[in-house]
Structure formats: C-alpha cells, structure tokens
Simulated scan of single mutants.
Amino acid sequence: MPDTIYDALRESHQIQRGLCRKLLRSKPHTENRIATFTDLRIELAAHAAAEERYLYAPILMDDMGLSSSRHALHEHHEVDELVEEMQEGDPASRGWLATARKLSKKVHHHLREEEKKFFQVSGKILSEAKKLQLAKQYRRDYKRMLKVLRED
C-alpha cells in the first residue's frame, strides 16, 4: 500500500508519544532528562514545521478545512509556548516537571484530535495522488528540519 501523508505523520506522532512518556519518567538531575527533552523539542519542531507546510497549508486553502487548520495551528503555538517555558526553567524543579506534564497532555490531546478529526476533514479535501505527493514532501522536509534543528 502506498505511503500517504497520514502514514508519515503517524510515525512522528508515535515518536512524540514515546518521548513524552520517557520525559515524564525521567529522574531530576540526570543527563537523560535533558537529552530526552532536547529530543522531544527537536521532534516537535521538525514535525510541526513540515506538517504546517505540507498538510495545514493546503487544507487552509479550502473553505471546508479553514476552521480545523486554524485550530491545529493554534495548538502548535500552545505547544511551542510550553517548550519555550521549559527551556527557560530548571529541569530539576517541580515546576518544570509540572510544565512537562502540561506539555505531554497538550501533545497527546493534539495528536488524538488530529488523527480522529483533522485527518478525516483533510481526507475529504485531498485527492489520493495529492496524499502521496504530500507524504514525500513532508518526509523530505521533516528530515531536513531534524538535521537543521540538531545543528543549532
């Protein structure tokens, strides 16, 4: 079966879920906590950039997808704000872990909503050929963004 944009996105979603679980289980004052947060931060940013370019933008151009695209973009912004707050905080503090829990909850909510609602709306808008084309474009940009973000 050919690879669609949804297959590509679900792979990253699984990585995000796993990193969120790993982060919440990490111990304070450990390199593992910092490394896991860094991995999650990079994964979220690379995924969001490529997803916004190769799924949200085309759906935003269709009246039927306008509301759901705007909502998804807003949730990406909320995730970005939580990540930024964590970057400025102390990974050993209780407040930092509380923010990590909020981030995990927000990420899980967004992924669930995207997979259950947004994929269905966008699936009605996009042709099968477009879903295949977007998968290739998304994967290429996602890999490029991972590389760029790891170099920062």
Rank of each mutant, 00 (worst) to 15 (best):
A8D: 11
Q133D: 04
M145C: 08
D90S: 10
K130P: 02
S104T: 12
L82I: 10
A46S: 06
Q14S: 13
L44H: 10
F118L: 11
R112Q: 13
K131N: 03
K116N: 06
A45P: 05
A92C: 02
E11M: 03
S12D: 12
L66T: 02
A48K: 13
V107W: 08
K117L: 03
A129Y: 00
M64F: 05
E78I: 05
K116D: 13
I5H: 00
V148Y: 14
M86L: 14
H74C: 12
H110T: 03
L23A: 15
T36H: 04
V121N: 03
E128P: 12
G18N: 14
R33E: 07
R101A: 03
A129W: 01
R139N: 09
Y142E: 11
A49R: 15
R10L: 08
I5W: 00
R94W: 07
A8Q: 13
I5E: 01
L132D: 02
T99H: 14
I5D: 00
R112K: 15
E31Q: 15
H74S: 07
A135D: 07
K147Q: 13
Y6A: 06
A45G: 07
Q137I: 01
R21G: 11
I59D: 05
D3H: 02
S104W: 05
R140G: 00
A92Y: 02
E113P: 07
R17S: 13
V121Q: 00
I15L: 14
R144N: 10
A72S: 15
R53F: 11
H76I: 07
E75K: 11
T36W: 04
D141K: 11
E52T: 09
S104I: 03
A129H: 02
R112C: 07
L60H: 05
K130C: 02
I59E: 01
A48F: 10
R53S: 14
R101M: 09
I59N: 01
E88T: 09
V107Y: 14
H71W: 09
R70L: 14
E84M: 07
K130V: 04
A45E: 09
R94I: 03
F37R: 05
K143E: 14
T38H: 13
L23K: 10
H71Y: 09
L103P: 06
L44F: 12
H47F: 13
F118I: 07
L24Q: 06
K124M: 01
P28M: 08
D39I: 05
K136R: 15
V79L: 13
S93I: 06
E52R: 15
M1V: 08
D62A: 07
R25T: 05
V79E: 12
Y142R: 15
I15W: 12
V79G: 04
S93P: 11
K117A: 04
E151M: 10
P28W: 02
G95F: 04
S12K: 02
S67E: 09
P2L: 03
V121R: 00
D63K: 01
L97W: 04
H108G: 08
R150I: 03
K130I: 01
E88D: 11
A72G: 06
T38Y: 14
D7V: 04
A100P: 10
H47D: 11
G65H: 00
